[in-house]
Design a protein around this nucleic acid. Structure first.
Lengths: 210, 210
DNA sequence: TAACATGATGGTAGTGTCTAACACATGAGT
DNA sequence: ACTCATGTGTTAGACACTACCATCATGTTA
């Protein structure tokens, strides 16, 4: 409730965007992603197809959620460089998940339900799953850059890429499991367990705020 | 040179398939994936667009290469269940890569060049990269099944999923690096280094033929 | 050899995603 | 009020992909 100076125009724009996306996710969840056309979504939201494309570049973007790459990258950059790579990255992922799913307000609960609906579609629809995996690819680049291993020598950069991709894959497994559990299990805990299963318990066990 | 009983019809069919795919990869590499239409590919190969779609369900499938899921799964299933998960999977991935890129005949070299062209397109084109990542998702399911951890308890299955996805992500990093090096570095060695960077040197160090 | 069955190919029409260009209306700043 | 910017609608179009039918070569059987 701090940085609020929205124009009436900007408010309307973001409101139609929210409206279109909400109808899209609802229709996709009810009838399946492929069975619903963009024109259907536009009609349900009371706008034209063009307006949908103005807000979302492709039909897939109606469902895809941007991961908090900025947040994760900052956590990685702030971590101690003396720790093993997978530990630095894993801690950042767990912290980001804790921050994202932590709050327990009414609006927060609605946001989490919406996020679960989107993720459910992403996991079950091949086209969305593919795009989602590729977006993790972009997140990977952000993390590697935050690790600061690029300029030195190419071999260190390669190791950073490998470790980062492996950590993100483990997180994706946790995300999938989170969706299957319908959000009942805590996401940070699932991520920690996925990381432990991949890299060993000692790579993530002593995770405390310091 | 053993299981050869191809009909004249089957030979022609596979020949046109090969021809179409070769022209497609060539045109995509020259002008970019998005700048070349399926009709262009069909014209270059001397067939109609319909024929292209009969051999390749989508435009993306003109470039996507099936990973030897069967081969990898068999390696995993044959590995000793007493070893750590990432070691079982990692060894299978390295062995499969060794088998795939090993031969040194004239035809083998041509195949490897073609594979490199396809992978180069897959890495650089977002749509192809996304599909390729999703195909690894299918490979993941095959490996998890080969691990035989599904029926027992869901927690073991979750750990198997996490470890497998992390190993495959490391392999994908190695594949990317292999393409960037234009195939000069041995793929099995790159995979071993990616696995070591992710899971520690001891997880892959003592890899010898036994 | 002749007739039939099978399967590969081409053509046409159509749907759906997405883009480009132009026109219209409404809120913002002077 | 006047202008300007911007969100929106309409239309036309390219392209990926599908459904359906016609055609023709190949493999099989009589």
């Amino acid at each position: 409730m701090s940085e609020r100076q929205p124009n009436l125009r900007e408010r309307r724009r973001s409101e139609t965007r929210r409206l279109v996306q909400a109808h899209a996710v609802r229709l996709f969840s009810e009838h399946g992603y492929d069975a619903v056309t963009v024109a259907d979504v536009a009609g349900a939201a009371g706008v034209s197809s063009m307006t949908v494309y103005r807000h979302f570049p492709t039909k897939e973007d109606l469902v895809l959620i941007d991961q908090p790459a900025q947040l994760i990258a900052e956590h990685v950059a702030a971590s101690s460089a003396t720790q093993p790579l997978v530990r630095r990255i894993g801690s950042a992922l767990i912290d980001a998940a804790t921050a994202s799913t932590g709050g327990n307000g009414d609006e927060q609960a609605a946001n989490e339900r919406f996020l679960l609906d989107c993720l459910r579609l992403m996991v079950s629809t091949p086209a969305l799953r593919a795009r989602h995996l590729d977006s993790q690819y972009a997140l990977q680049q952000a993390i590697v850059e935050a690790l600061g291993k690029d300029a030195t020598d190419p071999d260190a950069a390669f190791r950073a890429q490998a470790a980062t991709s492996a950590c993100l894959a483990a997180m994706h497994t946790a995300l999938t499991r989170w969706v299957e559990d319908d959000g009942r299990t805590g996401l940070p805990d699932l991520i920690a367990r996925a990381l432990a299963a991949s890299f060993g318990d000692d790579a993530v066990a002593t995770h405390r705020k310091d």
